[in-house]
Amino acid sequence: MSKLYIVPTPIGNLEDMTFRAIRILKEVDLILAEDTRTSGKLLKHFEIGTHMHSHHMHNEHKTTENVISRLKAGENIALISDAGTPAISDPGFLLTRACIENGIAVECLPGATAFVPALVNSGLPNDKFVFEGFLPEKKGRQTRYLELAEETRTMILYVSPHKLVKTLAEFVTYFGEDRQICVCRELSKLHEENRRGTAREVLTHFEKTAPRGEIVIIVAGKPIVKEAKKNKFQKEEE
């Protein structure tokens, strides 16, 4: 029976590639890659010779039907992104949904993803959290900030390095300059950095030091203000 494998790839450190992921990529009939040039380097490193096709956010609506046809014909196919787990702020959801709708088995391998180590590294509460990914670029951005300003769970966001300072300035505006945050940069790589502090402190740092690499931001939720307990005299009066 054919199957679609969702295969995580390292977010920076090649040692994070699992033995199982390598085996699956060698055994499948086809690998769908977000960028075949980027993935080509990974496959070469692990001596994986499986043929690749391009599958990314700009063509996934057109390529999904063909992939479904190949799976129905009996092929096993693996989907990878440039880094991390496909479908997490990367292509993968549309194809996964199409497979389920067509009765095709889907199996996601456990593996690298950026937001989990960032959340743990932050030191902020992680018993409850919300994954936001990338915020809207323009339309709806302010509305989303106003909604997130009331969020009490820890928040996880992705941001590109050239938009980090702007985003941190927006945090100061919408969350307040004392909100605790952690900017996690270059996770798993040699120059990994986890910059913790208030929104104002972290903004000041990156205004002076230009950020580089992939970035995850962890934001503490809005503090919950508990109502003071009524004393026994208040209860009796009521």
Rank of each mutant, 00 (worst) to 15 (best):
L43V: 02
D82I: 10
N66W: 10
V106L: 11
C108Y: 00
A98N: 06
D90H: 12
H51L: 11
A78L: 01
T154N: 11
G84C: 08
E151P: 02
L109A: 07
A98M: 01
L164A: 10
F129S: 06
I88Y: 03
G133T: 11
I88F: 01
R70I: 04
R144I: 09
T50Y: 07
T143P: 00
A73Y: 09
A118G: 04
T152A: 03
R153H: 12
L43K: 00
H45R: 15
F93T: 02
D90R: 05
P91F: 09
G49W: 05
A73L: 03
Q142H: 11
V130L: 15
I88T: 01
R97H: 08
P86C: 09
F129R: 06
E101K: 13
L124S: 08
P125I: 00
S89E: 03
T64F: 02
L109D: 02
L79W: 05
E150Q: 15
H55K: 13
E60Y: 04
T113Q: 11
N59V: 08
H56M: 09
T63V: 14
T85K: 10
L119M: 08
P91S: 11
I104C: 01
A149T: 01
V120M: 12
P125R: 07
L71E: 14
A118V: 05
L124N: 05
S122W: 10
L135K: 14
E137C: 01
P86W: 07
G49N: 14
L124D: 07
L119Q: 12
F46L: 04
I156M: 09
H51V: 08
K166E: 12
M52T: 14
K44R: 14
V116Q: 02
E132P: 10
M155R: 13
E75P: 01
L119D: 04
D127V: 05
G133Q: 07
A98I: 00
P117I: 03
L135V: 02
P86A: 11
F134E: 12
L42T: 04
L157P: 04
T38L: 13
T143C: 07
N66Y: 14
S54K: 14
T154C: 10
L157R: 07
V106R: 13
G40S: 09
